[in-house]
Structure formats: structure tokens, C-alpha cells
Design a protein around this nucleic acid. Sequence first.
DNA 1: TAGTGAACTGAACAAGCGTTCAATCACGGA
DNA 2: TCCGTGATTGAACGCTTGTTCAGTTCACTA
Lengths: 221, 221
Amino acid sequence: MAPSDITTRARIRDAAIEQIARKGYGVSMRVIADAAGVSLGLINHHFGSKDGLRAACDDHVLETIMNVKSETMRGGAVAAMAALGKMEEYVNPTAYCLRAIAAGGDVAQRIVDHFVADAKAWVGEAVADGTLRPSVDEEARIRLMTLQGFGAMQLFLSQRVGSADAELGPAGLNALLDDYLNEYGLVMLEMYTFGLFASSDMFDAFRAAGPNPRATTTEEH
Amino acid sequence: MAPSDITTRARIRDAAIEQIARKGYGVSMRVIADAAGVSLGLINHHFGSKDGLRAACDDHVLETIMNVKSETMRGGAVAAMAALGKMEEYVNPTAYCLRAIAAGGDVAQRIVDHFVADAKAWVGEAVADGTLRPSVDEEARIRLMTLQGFGAMQLFLSQRVGSADAELGPAGLNALLDDYLNEYGLVMLEMYTFGLFASSDMFDAFRAAGPNPRATTTEEH
DNA sequence: TAGTGAACTGAACAAGCGTTCAATCACGGA
DNA sequence: TCCGTGATTGAACGCTTGTTCAGTTCACTA
């Protein structure tokens, strides 16, 4: 796509998304202006303020991610991010999402919620056809696994990349996702297949003593 | 302990640890100086620079955490943080650790490494006495569970607390840990007890196709 | 008692940040 | 052709940041 095929406003927004994906939300507007090839004042002319620019970036990335075919999402947060990070058109949105999740707040919440909502559908199917075991609290299980999936990846990233503001380019992101799956893919599957405890004593005790779960099924294990 | 029982240097360091625990590493030196009741210049007199102060805080918190009895650590990252956060003397170091983990880099690495090293011992025992199942790669399994434990808690925190720099006091930390266990404790145990997949097809396929794990045992499931 | 050095302060500094704004440029309609 | 409106620039502003430093206080020692 030639540079002139796209609005200046969109070009600024895309440059901002790429810079934030690479360096985090702390990146200065002057760096973004340079990357977009425009002056500092023009950004404020189009977006009003840094917050305005950030909001526009957030919205655009979220819209992009939400339009990804649900098929790609199957397998949960980790598999989805790994798949998206490999596609050139999605590498910036993917890295941007990781930055947004690290920063916390509203966007992180919305990203997690989107993945949870998406997972509910296919997990429901998988439970119905017997591929996955049912849960005492399906919503909580899905949400926990999403938090664990994103969270572990996040930590792996922030340790590998140095500080939280260190630069992370497309190549770095791909290497990172590869390494993550190579190192932990097998034990992740092992964990999800056999669990950790040899007996259900702990679970039974906690279930008997703890507060009532908002049970979605009464199925027995 | 009366204020005069402790050196000024230590008082500054402790104030810095508390402020960083509450507000994150981004907190300004002027805020720390106010909290410690000293002038801005004195901090630089004692610590040379902001980095120097941060290093001193990092070291002190790490030393504190590492001296916690291994008994408290049993149960992994989540259980340990929940237990430590409840003890008044450890509430600041605990919150500080969460901030450090969020910030990434060297300290995060050292904290995770410490928990992993500690877990190796008691997981080894638990596997030996039949409480926990053995793994195809014990080191990776422990590390993954530590990353997942910290990571999920981190995400839960950053979503609940708003932005990553939002204030988090001792009361907030405790409420947060309680809520986390209430919401996810049961499904966490369920997950660790029964796993997720109904069959071992996925695991077997991945194990057959994937690269050789750095297997520590050749036990069969 | 005089002197020495560490603890400590307050003011100033340079650099970076987001924001503002007057001035220019380009271009389509009257 | 002229005019007006939106795009665009560059310089400046105010604020906050970490850092520096000359000067003051004060306890201890020779």
C-alpha cells in the first residue's frame, strides 16, 4: 500500500501503534511524530492530545483483534497470540496487545474479556463433545486460564526483554513466542492433560470447606 | 521501633520501598523525600542517584523475601504471596515484589528464580511421596507454574487497580489477594487435580512430534 | 578550643515531557 | 481571481523530572 493511499491521520495512528508496540505506552509524542514523518503539532491537531491518540490506537487495535476469525482463537490465549504474532499483518496489534495488558486498565480488561467470551463458545463445544472435562465453574475456569496464559507469557517476555520499556521488534516477538512454546509447550500440555495432584484430596477438602462456587454444572468427577 | 533506632539511610530506603510498593517504580524522588521526611539532596548524598536508591531497595527486598522460612513457600507462588501479604511485616516487600515483577528486568528474574529454586525442593519431596505426579521435565513444569501463578495474579491486580501506576495500599493488597483466591481458588485446584483434557491424545501427539524434552525422568503416565 | 568531616538543606540547573498557537501552505468553490 | 478552510509547521510555554552544588549544621577528635 503506497503511503498516499492512506489518510495522514491513519498514518499517524499506525505509526503510533507500531512505536507503542515496540517501546510501550511510555514512548514520547516526538518519537511518534518522527516515525510518522510529521510534526509534533499535527498529531495534536488530529487527535487533540496524547490521550486522544492513545484512545484512537486502543480502539483500532481492539477492532482489528476482534475481527480475527474465531477459528484462530481456538486453543486459548497462548495459542492465539502465537498464531497472530506469526502473521505479518497482525504482528503490531499483537505486540500492542501485550503492551496494553502490561499497562493494565481498561484496554487490558477489554482484551481479556474478548478472549474469555470467545473461549466460552468453543470450550462449551469441546466439553459437549467430550474433548474437555466439564468444570464446577466454567466461567471462572476460562477466565483463570486466560489470565494464566497471558500472564505467564507477559512475564516470560518482560524477563527476556529486560526492562518493561525495552524495545521489542517483530523479529524479537517471533523469537520470543517460539522460545516460549519450545520451553513450555510440552509441560503445558502435560499439566492440562494429567493435572498436578495425584489424588483429589485437596480439591475435595477445599470444595467441602470453601464458599459455594457459582456452579454452572453439578457434574461429578 | 522508634524513628531514631534506625539510620537515616535505612529510613529513606524503607520509605522508598513503601512508596514504590504503593505507586510503582515511576514514583518521583520528591515524593520519596517527603515520605521519608528528608530533603531531596540527602537521598542523592546517600545513594548517589535514583538508580542507586532503586538498587538498594531491590537488594533489601530480595534479601527480606529470601530469608522467609521455606515452610511459608510451600504451595507455590500464589499461596506464598497470599501468605506473605497477610503478615504486616511483609506487606510492603510483597507489594514491592509485584511491582518489580510488573516492571520486569533483573529483579523480576531473580524473584522468579528464587521461587523456582525453592519449589524444586518441596516438589521433589511431594513427587517422591506420591502427592504430586512426576513430570517429563520437572524444571520446566515448576518454572511454568511459577510464571503462571505470578502472571495471573499480576494481571488480576493490574485490571482491578486500574492503571499500572495506580496506588495500592496494604488494605488494597489484602482485599485483592482474598478476592483472587475466592474467585479462582476452586477452579485452580480443579485444574491441578483433574487437568483440562479428557484424553491424552494431544499430549501424546505433541510429545511424539515435538523436539526432545530435556527429560529429567522417563516415567510413563 | 579549634578543626575536620559527615549529614543535611535549599536553590538552581538542564533535559524531557505534553501542550499551545501564530504563521504558513495547499487547494476547491464563488 | 480571490477567498476561506483545513492541513501543516516550528517555536515557544509551563511543568516535572533527576541531578548538582555551595552553604550550613553538628558531633567528634586532636
